[in-house]
Design a protein around this nucleic acid. Structure first.
Length: 231
DNA sequence: CTCTCGATGCGCT
DNA sequence: GCGCATCGAGAGA
């Protein structure tokens, strides 16, 4: 399925109104269950970013699951620390961290309060506010569908940084999660899902590094990078 | 297309 | 002090 909020994409007619993208706040129930299941459930849902500059809406097309201290690839592997404390909190919060000293990454905390688990948002497809996203990404950014093709690109396009760490994505007004709605009912992702090993976690050791906990919408143009064959 | 490398702040050992 | 859940530029095939 293709999601479009571009008014120009609709034939012009006198009584036609803008085919407004209708948004409904995400249900917390979607964030319950095993983190690798939640990571797949988040595919196709929307991130809404409202700032003074305007609204941006982006569709999640790629995720990675990170579990608790037992997961040697997870930031929770050393137990609860100042940086990862949000991961151990209630589901629905944003865990935002700085990586390589210059890039931010956004996670959606899931699982029960007190138990560390989070889903990294690895790539999004711009849906609304594409020009604003392009402005934030800078003049060297590629075509529109690549503006959110990576975890740090996603944060840059949506103006997400450490100040938003701990934000409640289920209730906040500036950064929140939504499900797309058509004809009054919630949309369901019908696209096939592809999986593969998580990116950049070789240090985690054989068991955890090869776990296929990276998920994407098969063949989507906004994926951060290709999935290995036979994923 | 692929590969290599530098930037850059800070959490953790 | 080491190394990172990354990106973009540049070189070479």
């Amino acid at each position: 399925m293709t999601l479009t909020a571009d008014p120009a994409g609709e034939p012009h007619s006198e009584r036609s109104t803008t085919p407004a993208l209708r948004l409904r706040r995400m249900d917390a129930a979607l964030l319950a269950g095993p983190v690798e299941a939640v990571a797949q459930s988040l595919l196709g849902t929307l991130i809404v970013r409202d700032t003074d500059a305007g609204r941006c809406v982006a569709r999640i097309v790629e995720t990675e699951a990170y579990a608790g201290p037992e997961d040697r690839a997870s930031h929770a592997r050393a137990g609860r620390t100042a940086r990862n404390r949000v991961m151990f909190g209630p589901p629905g919060r944003a865990y935002v961290y700085l990586v390589y000293g210059l890039h931010h990454c956004l996670n959606v905390v899931c699982g029960p309060d007190g138990q560390a688990a989070a889903v990294l948002i690895r790539a999004v497809e711009p849906v609304e506010g594409v020009e604003l996203m392009r402005l934030r990404r800078g003049p060297t950014a590629g075509p529109g569908h690549r503006l959110g093709a990576g975890p740090a690109r996603t944060c840059q396009a949506l103006d997400i940084d450490g100040a938003l760490d701990g934000t409640d994505l289920l209730t906040d007004l500036q950064l929140w999660l939504a499900a797309p709605i058509w004809s009054g009912s919630a949309a369901r992702l019908t696209d096939p899902i592809v999986s593969g090993p998580r990116v950049g976690v070789a240090y985690a050791g054989a068991g955890w590094a090869v776990l296929p906990w990276r998920f994407g919408i098969t063949g989507h143009a906004s994926l951060s990078r290709p999935f290995p064959r036979a994923g």
